[in-house]
């Protein structure tokens, strides 16, 4: 009786998992189709950065990058095509992933890496956010190493065809229906904000030293060595923030030190006018608005263009 039950159970389990496999495959294919059919929204911008852009200047960074660098303004000053591949909520691992993906297709002349305050702080979220690369796991093998930073079981989870699209139903729907084209229009990856910061009181950012995330530091160094190896002009930038003492942030200091050791230019705009004194150039403490972004884009592009000129 018991043996019979075990046999029946094994048979049913196998059939069940076969059905799960088929449904998972079918739903996964549907999700995949609609994922790569998007033509707007944040997911689309990752796809575009990885698979389509051929810009000579590539901007990498988090939301501060996507809000601060206006490619149209930069193009005029640099006389080069620019794409802003900044992605909100992401950290150094994401930037490295985009760089690796892009290098499979072409070699940009200039990479601008906008680093975040507390970039090297150990935060689990930086690893969790690498889920953004899951839909590309089979088309971009160069991202595998980064995807596996999420957990050692990622290859097991990726047996499922649905898993890469976990929590993405609505964003994918949005990317297909094009709501973001109206709600949050983009200019070559750049997402301008019109809002103006109302609070003129400048808060102080205290320097707090913490245990640094060695993987993040290693990734930062790998970005620098990759660019050096590929002959790409890399510029590490710390863009403006309306916070007192932010330039003294622990991670920013570390980035400055490592960049200097590696001979990579570090452009620090934390103490640059007019951003230090004019809160009307911001939408909040850490994001420039469109007006501020235009001024900043001009400044950073001029600075890089001059360096490139001197280099030649």
């Amino acid at each position: 009786m018991e043996k019979q039950d075990i046999f029946r159970f094994v048979k049913r389990t196998l059939l069940f998992f076969l059905a799960v496999f088929l449904v998972d495959f079918a739903v996964g294919q549907v999700m995949r189709y609609f994922y790569f059919r998007q033509d707007s929204g944040s997911l689309y911008r990752t796809t575009y950065a990885l698979d389509s852009t051929t810009a000579q200047v590539l901007v990498l960074g988090s939301s501060r990058a996507s809000r601060h660098y206006n490619p149209d303004v930069m193009q005029v000053a640099m006389n080069r095509t620019v794409y802003n591949a900044g992605q909100k909520g992401n950290h150094i691992f994401y930037h490295y992933g985009i760089l690796k993906g892009v290098l499979r297709r072409y070699k940009p002349q200039v990479v601008v890496l906008d680093i975040l305050y507390d970039e090297f702080k150990p935060v689990q979220d930086s690893y969790d956010r690498l889920s953004v690369f899951l839909p590309y796991h089979d088309t971009h093998p160069e991202l595998e190493e980064l995807i596996n930073l999420r957990s050692p079981f990622e290859p097991v989870k990726l047996v499922s065809k649905v898993y890469p699209y976990n929590s993405l139903i609505l964003p994918v729907l949005n990317g297909n229906l094009g709501f973001d084209k109206v709600r949050e229009p983009e200019i070559k990856g750049y997402l301008p904000i019109d809002a103006v910061m109302t609070d003129s009181v400048k808060k102080r950012s205290e320097r707090i030293e913490y245990g640094l995330d060695s993987l993040k530091l290693q990734t930062f160094e790998e970005i620098m060595s990759t660019c050096k190896k590929e002959g790409i002009n890399l510029y590490v930038v710390f863009s403006p923030a309306y916070l007192e003492n932010i330039g003294n942030n622990y991670s920013v200091s570390i980035a400055r030190k490592i960049a200097s050791e590696q001979g990579v230019p570090f452009l620090d705009f934390s103490g640059t006018e007019p951003f230090v004194s004019d809160n009307k150039l911001y939408s909040d403490n850490v994001h420039l608005n469109a007006k501020g972004a235009d001024i900043f884009s001009r400044q950073v592009a001029d600075s890089i263009a001059n360096r490139l000129k001197n280099q030649n």
Binding site: F16, A19, D24, V27, Q124, V162, S167
Partner: peptide, 19 residues
Amino acid sequence: RYSTYIFLLLMILLMGVFD
């Protein structure tokens, strides 16, 4: 019965928070 189990599994894969 089995469709329900598969639906729940699918919901977990599509909507579950794995982090």
